[in-house]
Design a protein around this nucleic acid. Structure first.
Lengths: 215, 215
DNA sequence: TAGATTGTTAATCGATTAACAATC
DNA sequence: TAGATTGTTAATCGATTAACAATC
């Protein structure tokens, strides 16, 4: 079965699942056992039908009149997202954004372990930033193979994005979380997940302009 | 005319505009005068029809057989996004992500100026981080009014997100760029732009699992 | 039982893609 | 002129929302 690598089907749902998870963990820590889709929807500004459809995609089944058992729901979402399994990753480019991501506590609790960082700057190589050692980019191919790493977080300056991605692909990286502005050309076997701050800023800019002009 | 604040119409286009802009500036610096939608599409992995439709939303008009005049296109996109006008903003929460954003050079060239940062931690108040002074959160309401600030970047820990947002709204902030995981309850007159790293990580996780399992 | 809630099927909505006329 | 390219109108596709039967 061939899957279009640009297929976005189901992705809006996948993007909402972390919101549910966040709320459910809060409810769980408050000792709440059951929750209805109506309640979740109210808390997150979503329609209850959409909540039920999203949750159904994880395979969970609720009980009429009662709702969903919170611990089971948490487990189902984490399992669906694979956040109950550990995934090792490299981070490439230890600038300000890269450094911030190295210290982001949210990765670990979602199964993502950054086990090494890489940079070309001799001033940075050898340092330990937020508990992660910074290595020379030369060492990436060898290490990726030996440690069986398939995932890379790309935070280099835009002008080096493509050449760095080429190195990563050759080293066997199969997924690139791309924080640069550059559109990466990669083989079909590799997927790129773009995380573009500028896209959010664009929406923000347009909406702010509308809000300030219209009222 | 009442506008639904949750309206997403046109937003996919708005989110793609920064990509075009990035490419066009590169072409411009290479001295290229004209570019076709086909060429843009090839460089960015998009269909040429979609490129034309996206560009048309900015009001630009191309020339059959020739394409679009690059400098005019750059100007049209920047104007449509309002990136040619300066917008002042506050940043609230000077943790690792907040600090990284303070140093993000991409904001300035898109018309976003962070003119002050706020935090409740006495160790941080009074410091200057990446050229921006960190002030006590107490001072936000007074300063927002005096300086006529309507935009806030929220990077506090999740558990303080709602109370901090409440303070911001009372202070007259009209737009909140929300980097926390918390869904914010705000009045209709305020818009929230969520920027959720976990959403991207969720998509990445699901796609990586598929890629590694299926082949 | 009655009513709240789930889960499914159908309708709507918006965005993308296809087809094609207009134009330099 | 011929052909490449734009811009528009129609068709398709996927996601959201509405309607409603099933169930505890």
């Amino acid at each position: 079965m061939i899957e279009d690598k640009n297929s976005l089907s189901g992705l809006p749902t996948v993007r909402r699942l972390p919101m549910y998870l966040h709320l459910l963990k809060e409810l769980n820590s408050q000792g709440r056992e059951f929750v209805s889709s109506t309640h979740i929807g109210e808390k997150l500004g979503l329609d209850s039908v959409q909540v039920r459809k999203d949750l159904a995609s994880t395979g969970i089944v609720g009980k009429p009149k009662i709702g969903f058992y919170v611990p089971a729901l948490i487990g189902a979402i984490e399992s669906y997202l694979g956040w109950d399994n550990s995934k090792d990753a490299f981070l490439i480019g230890v600038g300000s954004l890269g450094s911030a991501l190295l210290g982001y506590a949210g990765f670990e609790k979602r199964g993502l372990n950054i086990i090494a960082a890489f940079d070309n700057d001799p001033d940075k190589v050898g340092k330990i930033i937020r508990g992660v050692e910074v290595l020379s980019l030369d060492k990436l191919p060898d290490l990726a193979e030996r440690m069986n790493i398939h995932l890379g977080i790309l935070t280099v300056p835009g002008e080096y994005a493509q050449v760095t991605a080429d190195v990563m692909v050759l080293a066997g990286i199969r997924g690139i979380w791309n924080f640069t502005q550059t559109y990466l050309q990669v083989p079909e076997s590799v997927f790129v997940q773009d995380e573009d701050l500028a896209a959010g800023l664009a929406v923000l800019s347009v909406r702010l302009a509308r809000a300030l002009n219209q009222e």
